[in-house]
Design a protein around this nucleic acid. Structure first.
Lengths: 184, 184
DNA sequence: CTAGATTGTCTAGCAGTGCTAGGGTTCGGC
DNA sequence: GCCGAACCCTAGCACTGCTAGACAATCTAG
C-alpha cells in the first residue's frame, strides 16, 4: 500500500521537522521562549498540528532529550576508548557546553522521563553504563556508587559552568582535579 | 516621626509577609505554581501590591534565595566547626533536601543574581568562602579550584537527588565516597 | 467516476500567566 | 476642615498551553 506508506512517510518527516526545529529554537533562544505558537510558526503549521504528534509541549522537550542522551553516550564512548576517564569527562562537559539546551532538556528541565526505575528508557541506562565503564577501573569496592558520585560531580560542573557560577577560565583545571582525585 | 515609622514598619511587615508566604508556597507546591495571583491571594492583597515591594516575580524568588544562602552558610559553618568537611558536606545536602524550593531558588532557577563578579551579594561570597574553609586543609596547591570542584560535586548530588535521578537509598555512601576521595 | 469515510488542518476560543494604567480611598500634616 | 501623599483595587493587555468544531484534502469502495 504505497498510499499508506506515503502518508506515514510524510508524517514521520513532519515529526522530525518539529523535533529538529524545537531543538534549534531552544538552542538559539532558550526553552523558555519555545512556545507552541512560535514553534508552529517556525515549522509553518498551526498549533494543533503539534498536538497531533506529541502529547504536549513537555513531550517535545522529552523527545529532544532522548535524542540528546544517545548522542552524549556516543560521545562519551568514543572519548573513553581513546583517552580513558579523563577524556570521557571532557567529552561530557563539552557536550553540555556545546548543546546547553539539549543538556537542559535531559538533566535539568522538569520531565516525565523516569530515570532510576526499570521502565526508564534504555538510552538513559546506556548513558549511565558508559560512565560506569569509565570509572570501573578505579572502583575498589562499589562501582555503582562511584558512578553516581562521578556523574553528579560532572553534572554539577556542567550546570554551574553554564549558569556562570564558576570561573570560566578554570574549566580545564576543574576537570583535571576532579579526575585525578577521584581516581586516586 | 512616629507616623513615618509606623508606615515604614507596616511596610516592612508586608515585605516579610510576602517573602515568607512565597517561600512557604514554593515549598508546598513548587515555584511553578507560585503565581502572582496565588501569592497575592495568600497574603490577602491584590497583585499590584507585590510590585510595590518587588520589581517582579523573579525578584521575590531572588530575595528568598538570599535568605536561604545565609541560612545555608550558617548550617555549613556550624557543621564544619563540629565535624570538618564531612559534616559540612552532609549539612549542605541536608539543607538542599529539607528546603528544596529555597535551594532551587539559589542555584537552579534562572536568576538575576550575579555570582562570580565583584558586585555579587556578599552572602554568596560568604557561602563560597565557607566551603573554601572546609576544603583548604586538603588543597595542596590551588584551593580556589578545589573549592569549585567540591561545590560542584555537592551541587550535582543535591540536584540529582532531588529529581530522583540517583538511588535514594545510597545518599550517605555517596557523600562518604566523595569526601574520602577528594580529601585523599 | 462518483459517494462516503477518514485524515489532515485551520480558525477561534478557553482559562491561566506576568505585569500595569487609572481611579478611588485612607492617612498624616497643617 | 483641607490638601497632598501614600496606598490599594479593579480592569485590562499581551502572552502562555491547549482544545473544540468547522472545513478541505485524500483515500476507499461501489
Amino acid at each position: 500500500m504505497p498510499t499508506q506508506s506515503r502518508r506515514e512517510r510524510a508524517r514521520a518527516e513532519r515529526h522530525d521537522l518539529i523535533l529538529r526545529t524545537a531543538r534549534e529554537l531552544a538552542e538559539s533562544v532558550g526553552w523558555g521562549a519555545v512556545t507552541t505558537r512560535r514553534l508552529a510558526e517556525a515549522v509553518d503549521y498551526s498549533q494543533p498540528v503539534l498536538y497531533g504528534h506529541f502529547k504536549n509541549m513537555n513531550a517535545i522537550a522529552d523527545a529532544v532529550a532522548l535524542q540528546g542522551v544517545e548522542e552524549l553516550t556516543v560521545a562519551m564512548r568514543t572519548a573513553r576508548e581513546d583517552g580513558g576517564l579523563r577524556a570521557l569527562a571532557q567529552a561530557y562537559l563539552d557536550y553540555a557546553a556545546e548543546h546547553p539546551a539539549v543538556y537542559e532538556a535531559i538533566f535539568v528541565r522538569p520531565t516525565d522521563l523516569s530515570f532510576g526505575s526499570p521502565d526508564s528508557p534504555s538510552s538513559l541506562k546506556d548513558a549511565f553504563d558508559e560512565i560506569r565503564a569509565g570509572v570501573e577501573p578505579f572502583a575498589d569496592t562499589d562501582p555503582e556508587t562511584l558512578t553516581e558520585v562521578f556523574w553528579s560531580a560532572l553534572h554539577g560542573q556542567a550546570t554551574l559552568n553554564h549558569t556562570n557560577r564558576l570561573r570560566p577560565t578554570h574549566a580545564k583545571p576543574r576537570v583535571d582535579l576532579l579526575v585525578s582525585r577521584l581516581t586516586g
